[in-house]
C-alpha cells in the first residue's frame, strides 16, 4: 500500500534512529564503571554484616547492623564443597531462632543467582539474612498475587525490597522489611558479587513483623 511504510523503510528508520542516537551518546566509560564498583566495595566493606536497602514502592523498611571489617577479598576461585557447606551452616547458625518462621533457606553461593520461592499470606514481614565468607550479595524480593505466575517477569512481578549484604568470616544478621499487599508468592533472589561465588554461604528467615 502506498500510504504505509514498507518493511525496508521501517528498517531504515530504525537504522537512522540508531545512527542519530549513537552519535549523541557520550559513554561515561569503563573507567567510570570501575570507579563505581571500587567505591561500592569500600562502602560494602564498611558495613560488613549490614544490609543496605533501597526502598521500592514505599513498602520497604531499613535496618542496618554490623561492624567495620577489612576490604573484601579478591576472588581466588571456589572453595572445596565441605568448606562451602560449612560457610552455609555458619550463616544459618547466626540467625536468631523464631518459632513464627514463615520461610527459611540457607545455601552456598555460586555463579548462578539463587532463587527461592514460596507462598506468603498478606502482611508485613521481617527477613533476617546473614552471609558468611568472602564478597557480598545483591538481594531482590519479588511478589506476585496468588495465581499469577509472574515472579520472573520484571514487568509484572512487583519488587518489594532490594538490598546488599557484605559477607564476613564472622557474620552478623541484618534485617530487611517488606509488605505483601495480598496473599501471593514471594521469590527471594540472591546474587553473589565481589568474589562471593563459590566462597560464601547465605541464609535467611522470613517472619511476620507483627
Amino acid at each position: 500500500m502506498a500510504d504505509q511504510l514498507t518493511d525496508d523503510q521501517l528498517a531504515d528508520l530504525f537504522a537512522g534512529l540508531r545512527a542519530d542516537t549513537v552519535a549523541a551518546v557520550l559513554p561515561p566509560g569503563a573507567d567510570a564503571a570501575r570507579h563505581t564498583v571500587r567505591r561500592r566495595r569500600q562502602a560494602r566493606a564498611a558495613v560488613t554484616g549490614g544490609l543496605a536497602v533501597a526502598a521500592v514502592a514505599g513498602v520497604v523498611g531499613v535496618a542496618v547492623a554490623g561492624t567495620p571489617a577489612a576490604p573484601p577479598a579478591e576472588p581466588t576461585g571456589p572453595l572445596p564443597t565441605a568448606d562451602r557447606s560449612a560457610l552455609r551452616d555458619l550463616a544459618e547458625s547466626v540467625l536468631p531462632p523464631d518459632a513464627r518462621s514463615a520461610a527459611a533457606w540457607s545455601f552456598s553461593l555460586g555463579d548462578e543467582t539463587s532463587n527461592t520461592a514460596g507462598e506468603l499470606p498478606a502482611g508485613s514481614y521481617r527477613m533476617v539474612v546473614a552471609c558468611a565468607g568472602d564478597g557480598g550479595t545483591d538481594v531482590l524480593v519479588r511478589w506476585t498475587p496468588r495465581g499469577e505466575d509472574n515472579l520472573f517477569d520484571p514487568e509484572r512481578a512487583v519488587v518489594v525490597a532490594t538490598g546488599e549484604t557484605a559477607c564476613a568470616a564472622a557474620p552478623s544478621p541484618a534485617t530487611l522489611r517488606f509488605v505483601t499487599p495480598r496473599d501471593g508468592e514471594v521469590m527471594v533472589s540472591v546474587e553473589a558479587v565481589d568474589g562471593a561465588a563459590g566462597r560464601a554461604g547465605f541464609a535467611y528467615r522470613i517472619v511476620p513483623a507483627r
Binding site: P27, A33, V37, R40, D138, A192, V193, D194, A197
Partner: peptide, 14 residues
C-alpha cells in the same frame, strides 16, 4: 546501561 555494566564488572569473573 552504565549501571548494568557496573553490575557486570562487579561479577565479571562469572
Amino acid at each position: 546501561v552504565q549501571e548494568a555494566f557496573c553490575r557486570a564488572l562487579a561479577r565479571w569473573s562469572s
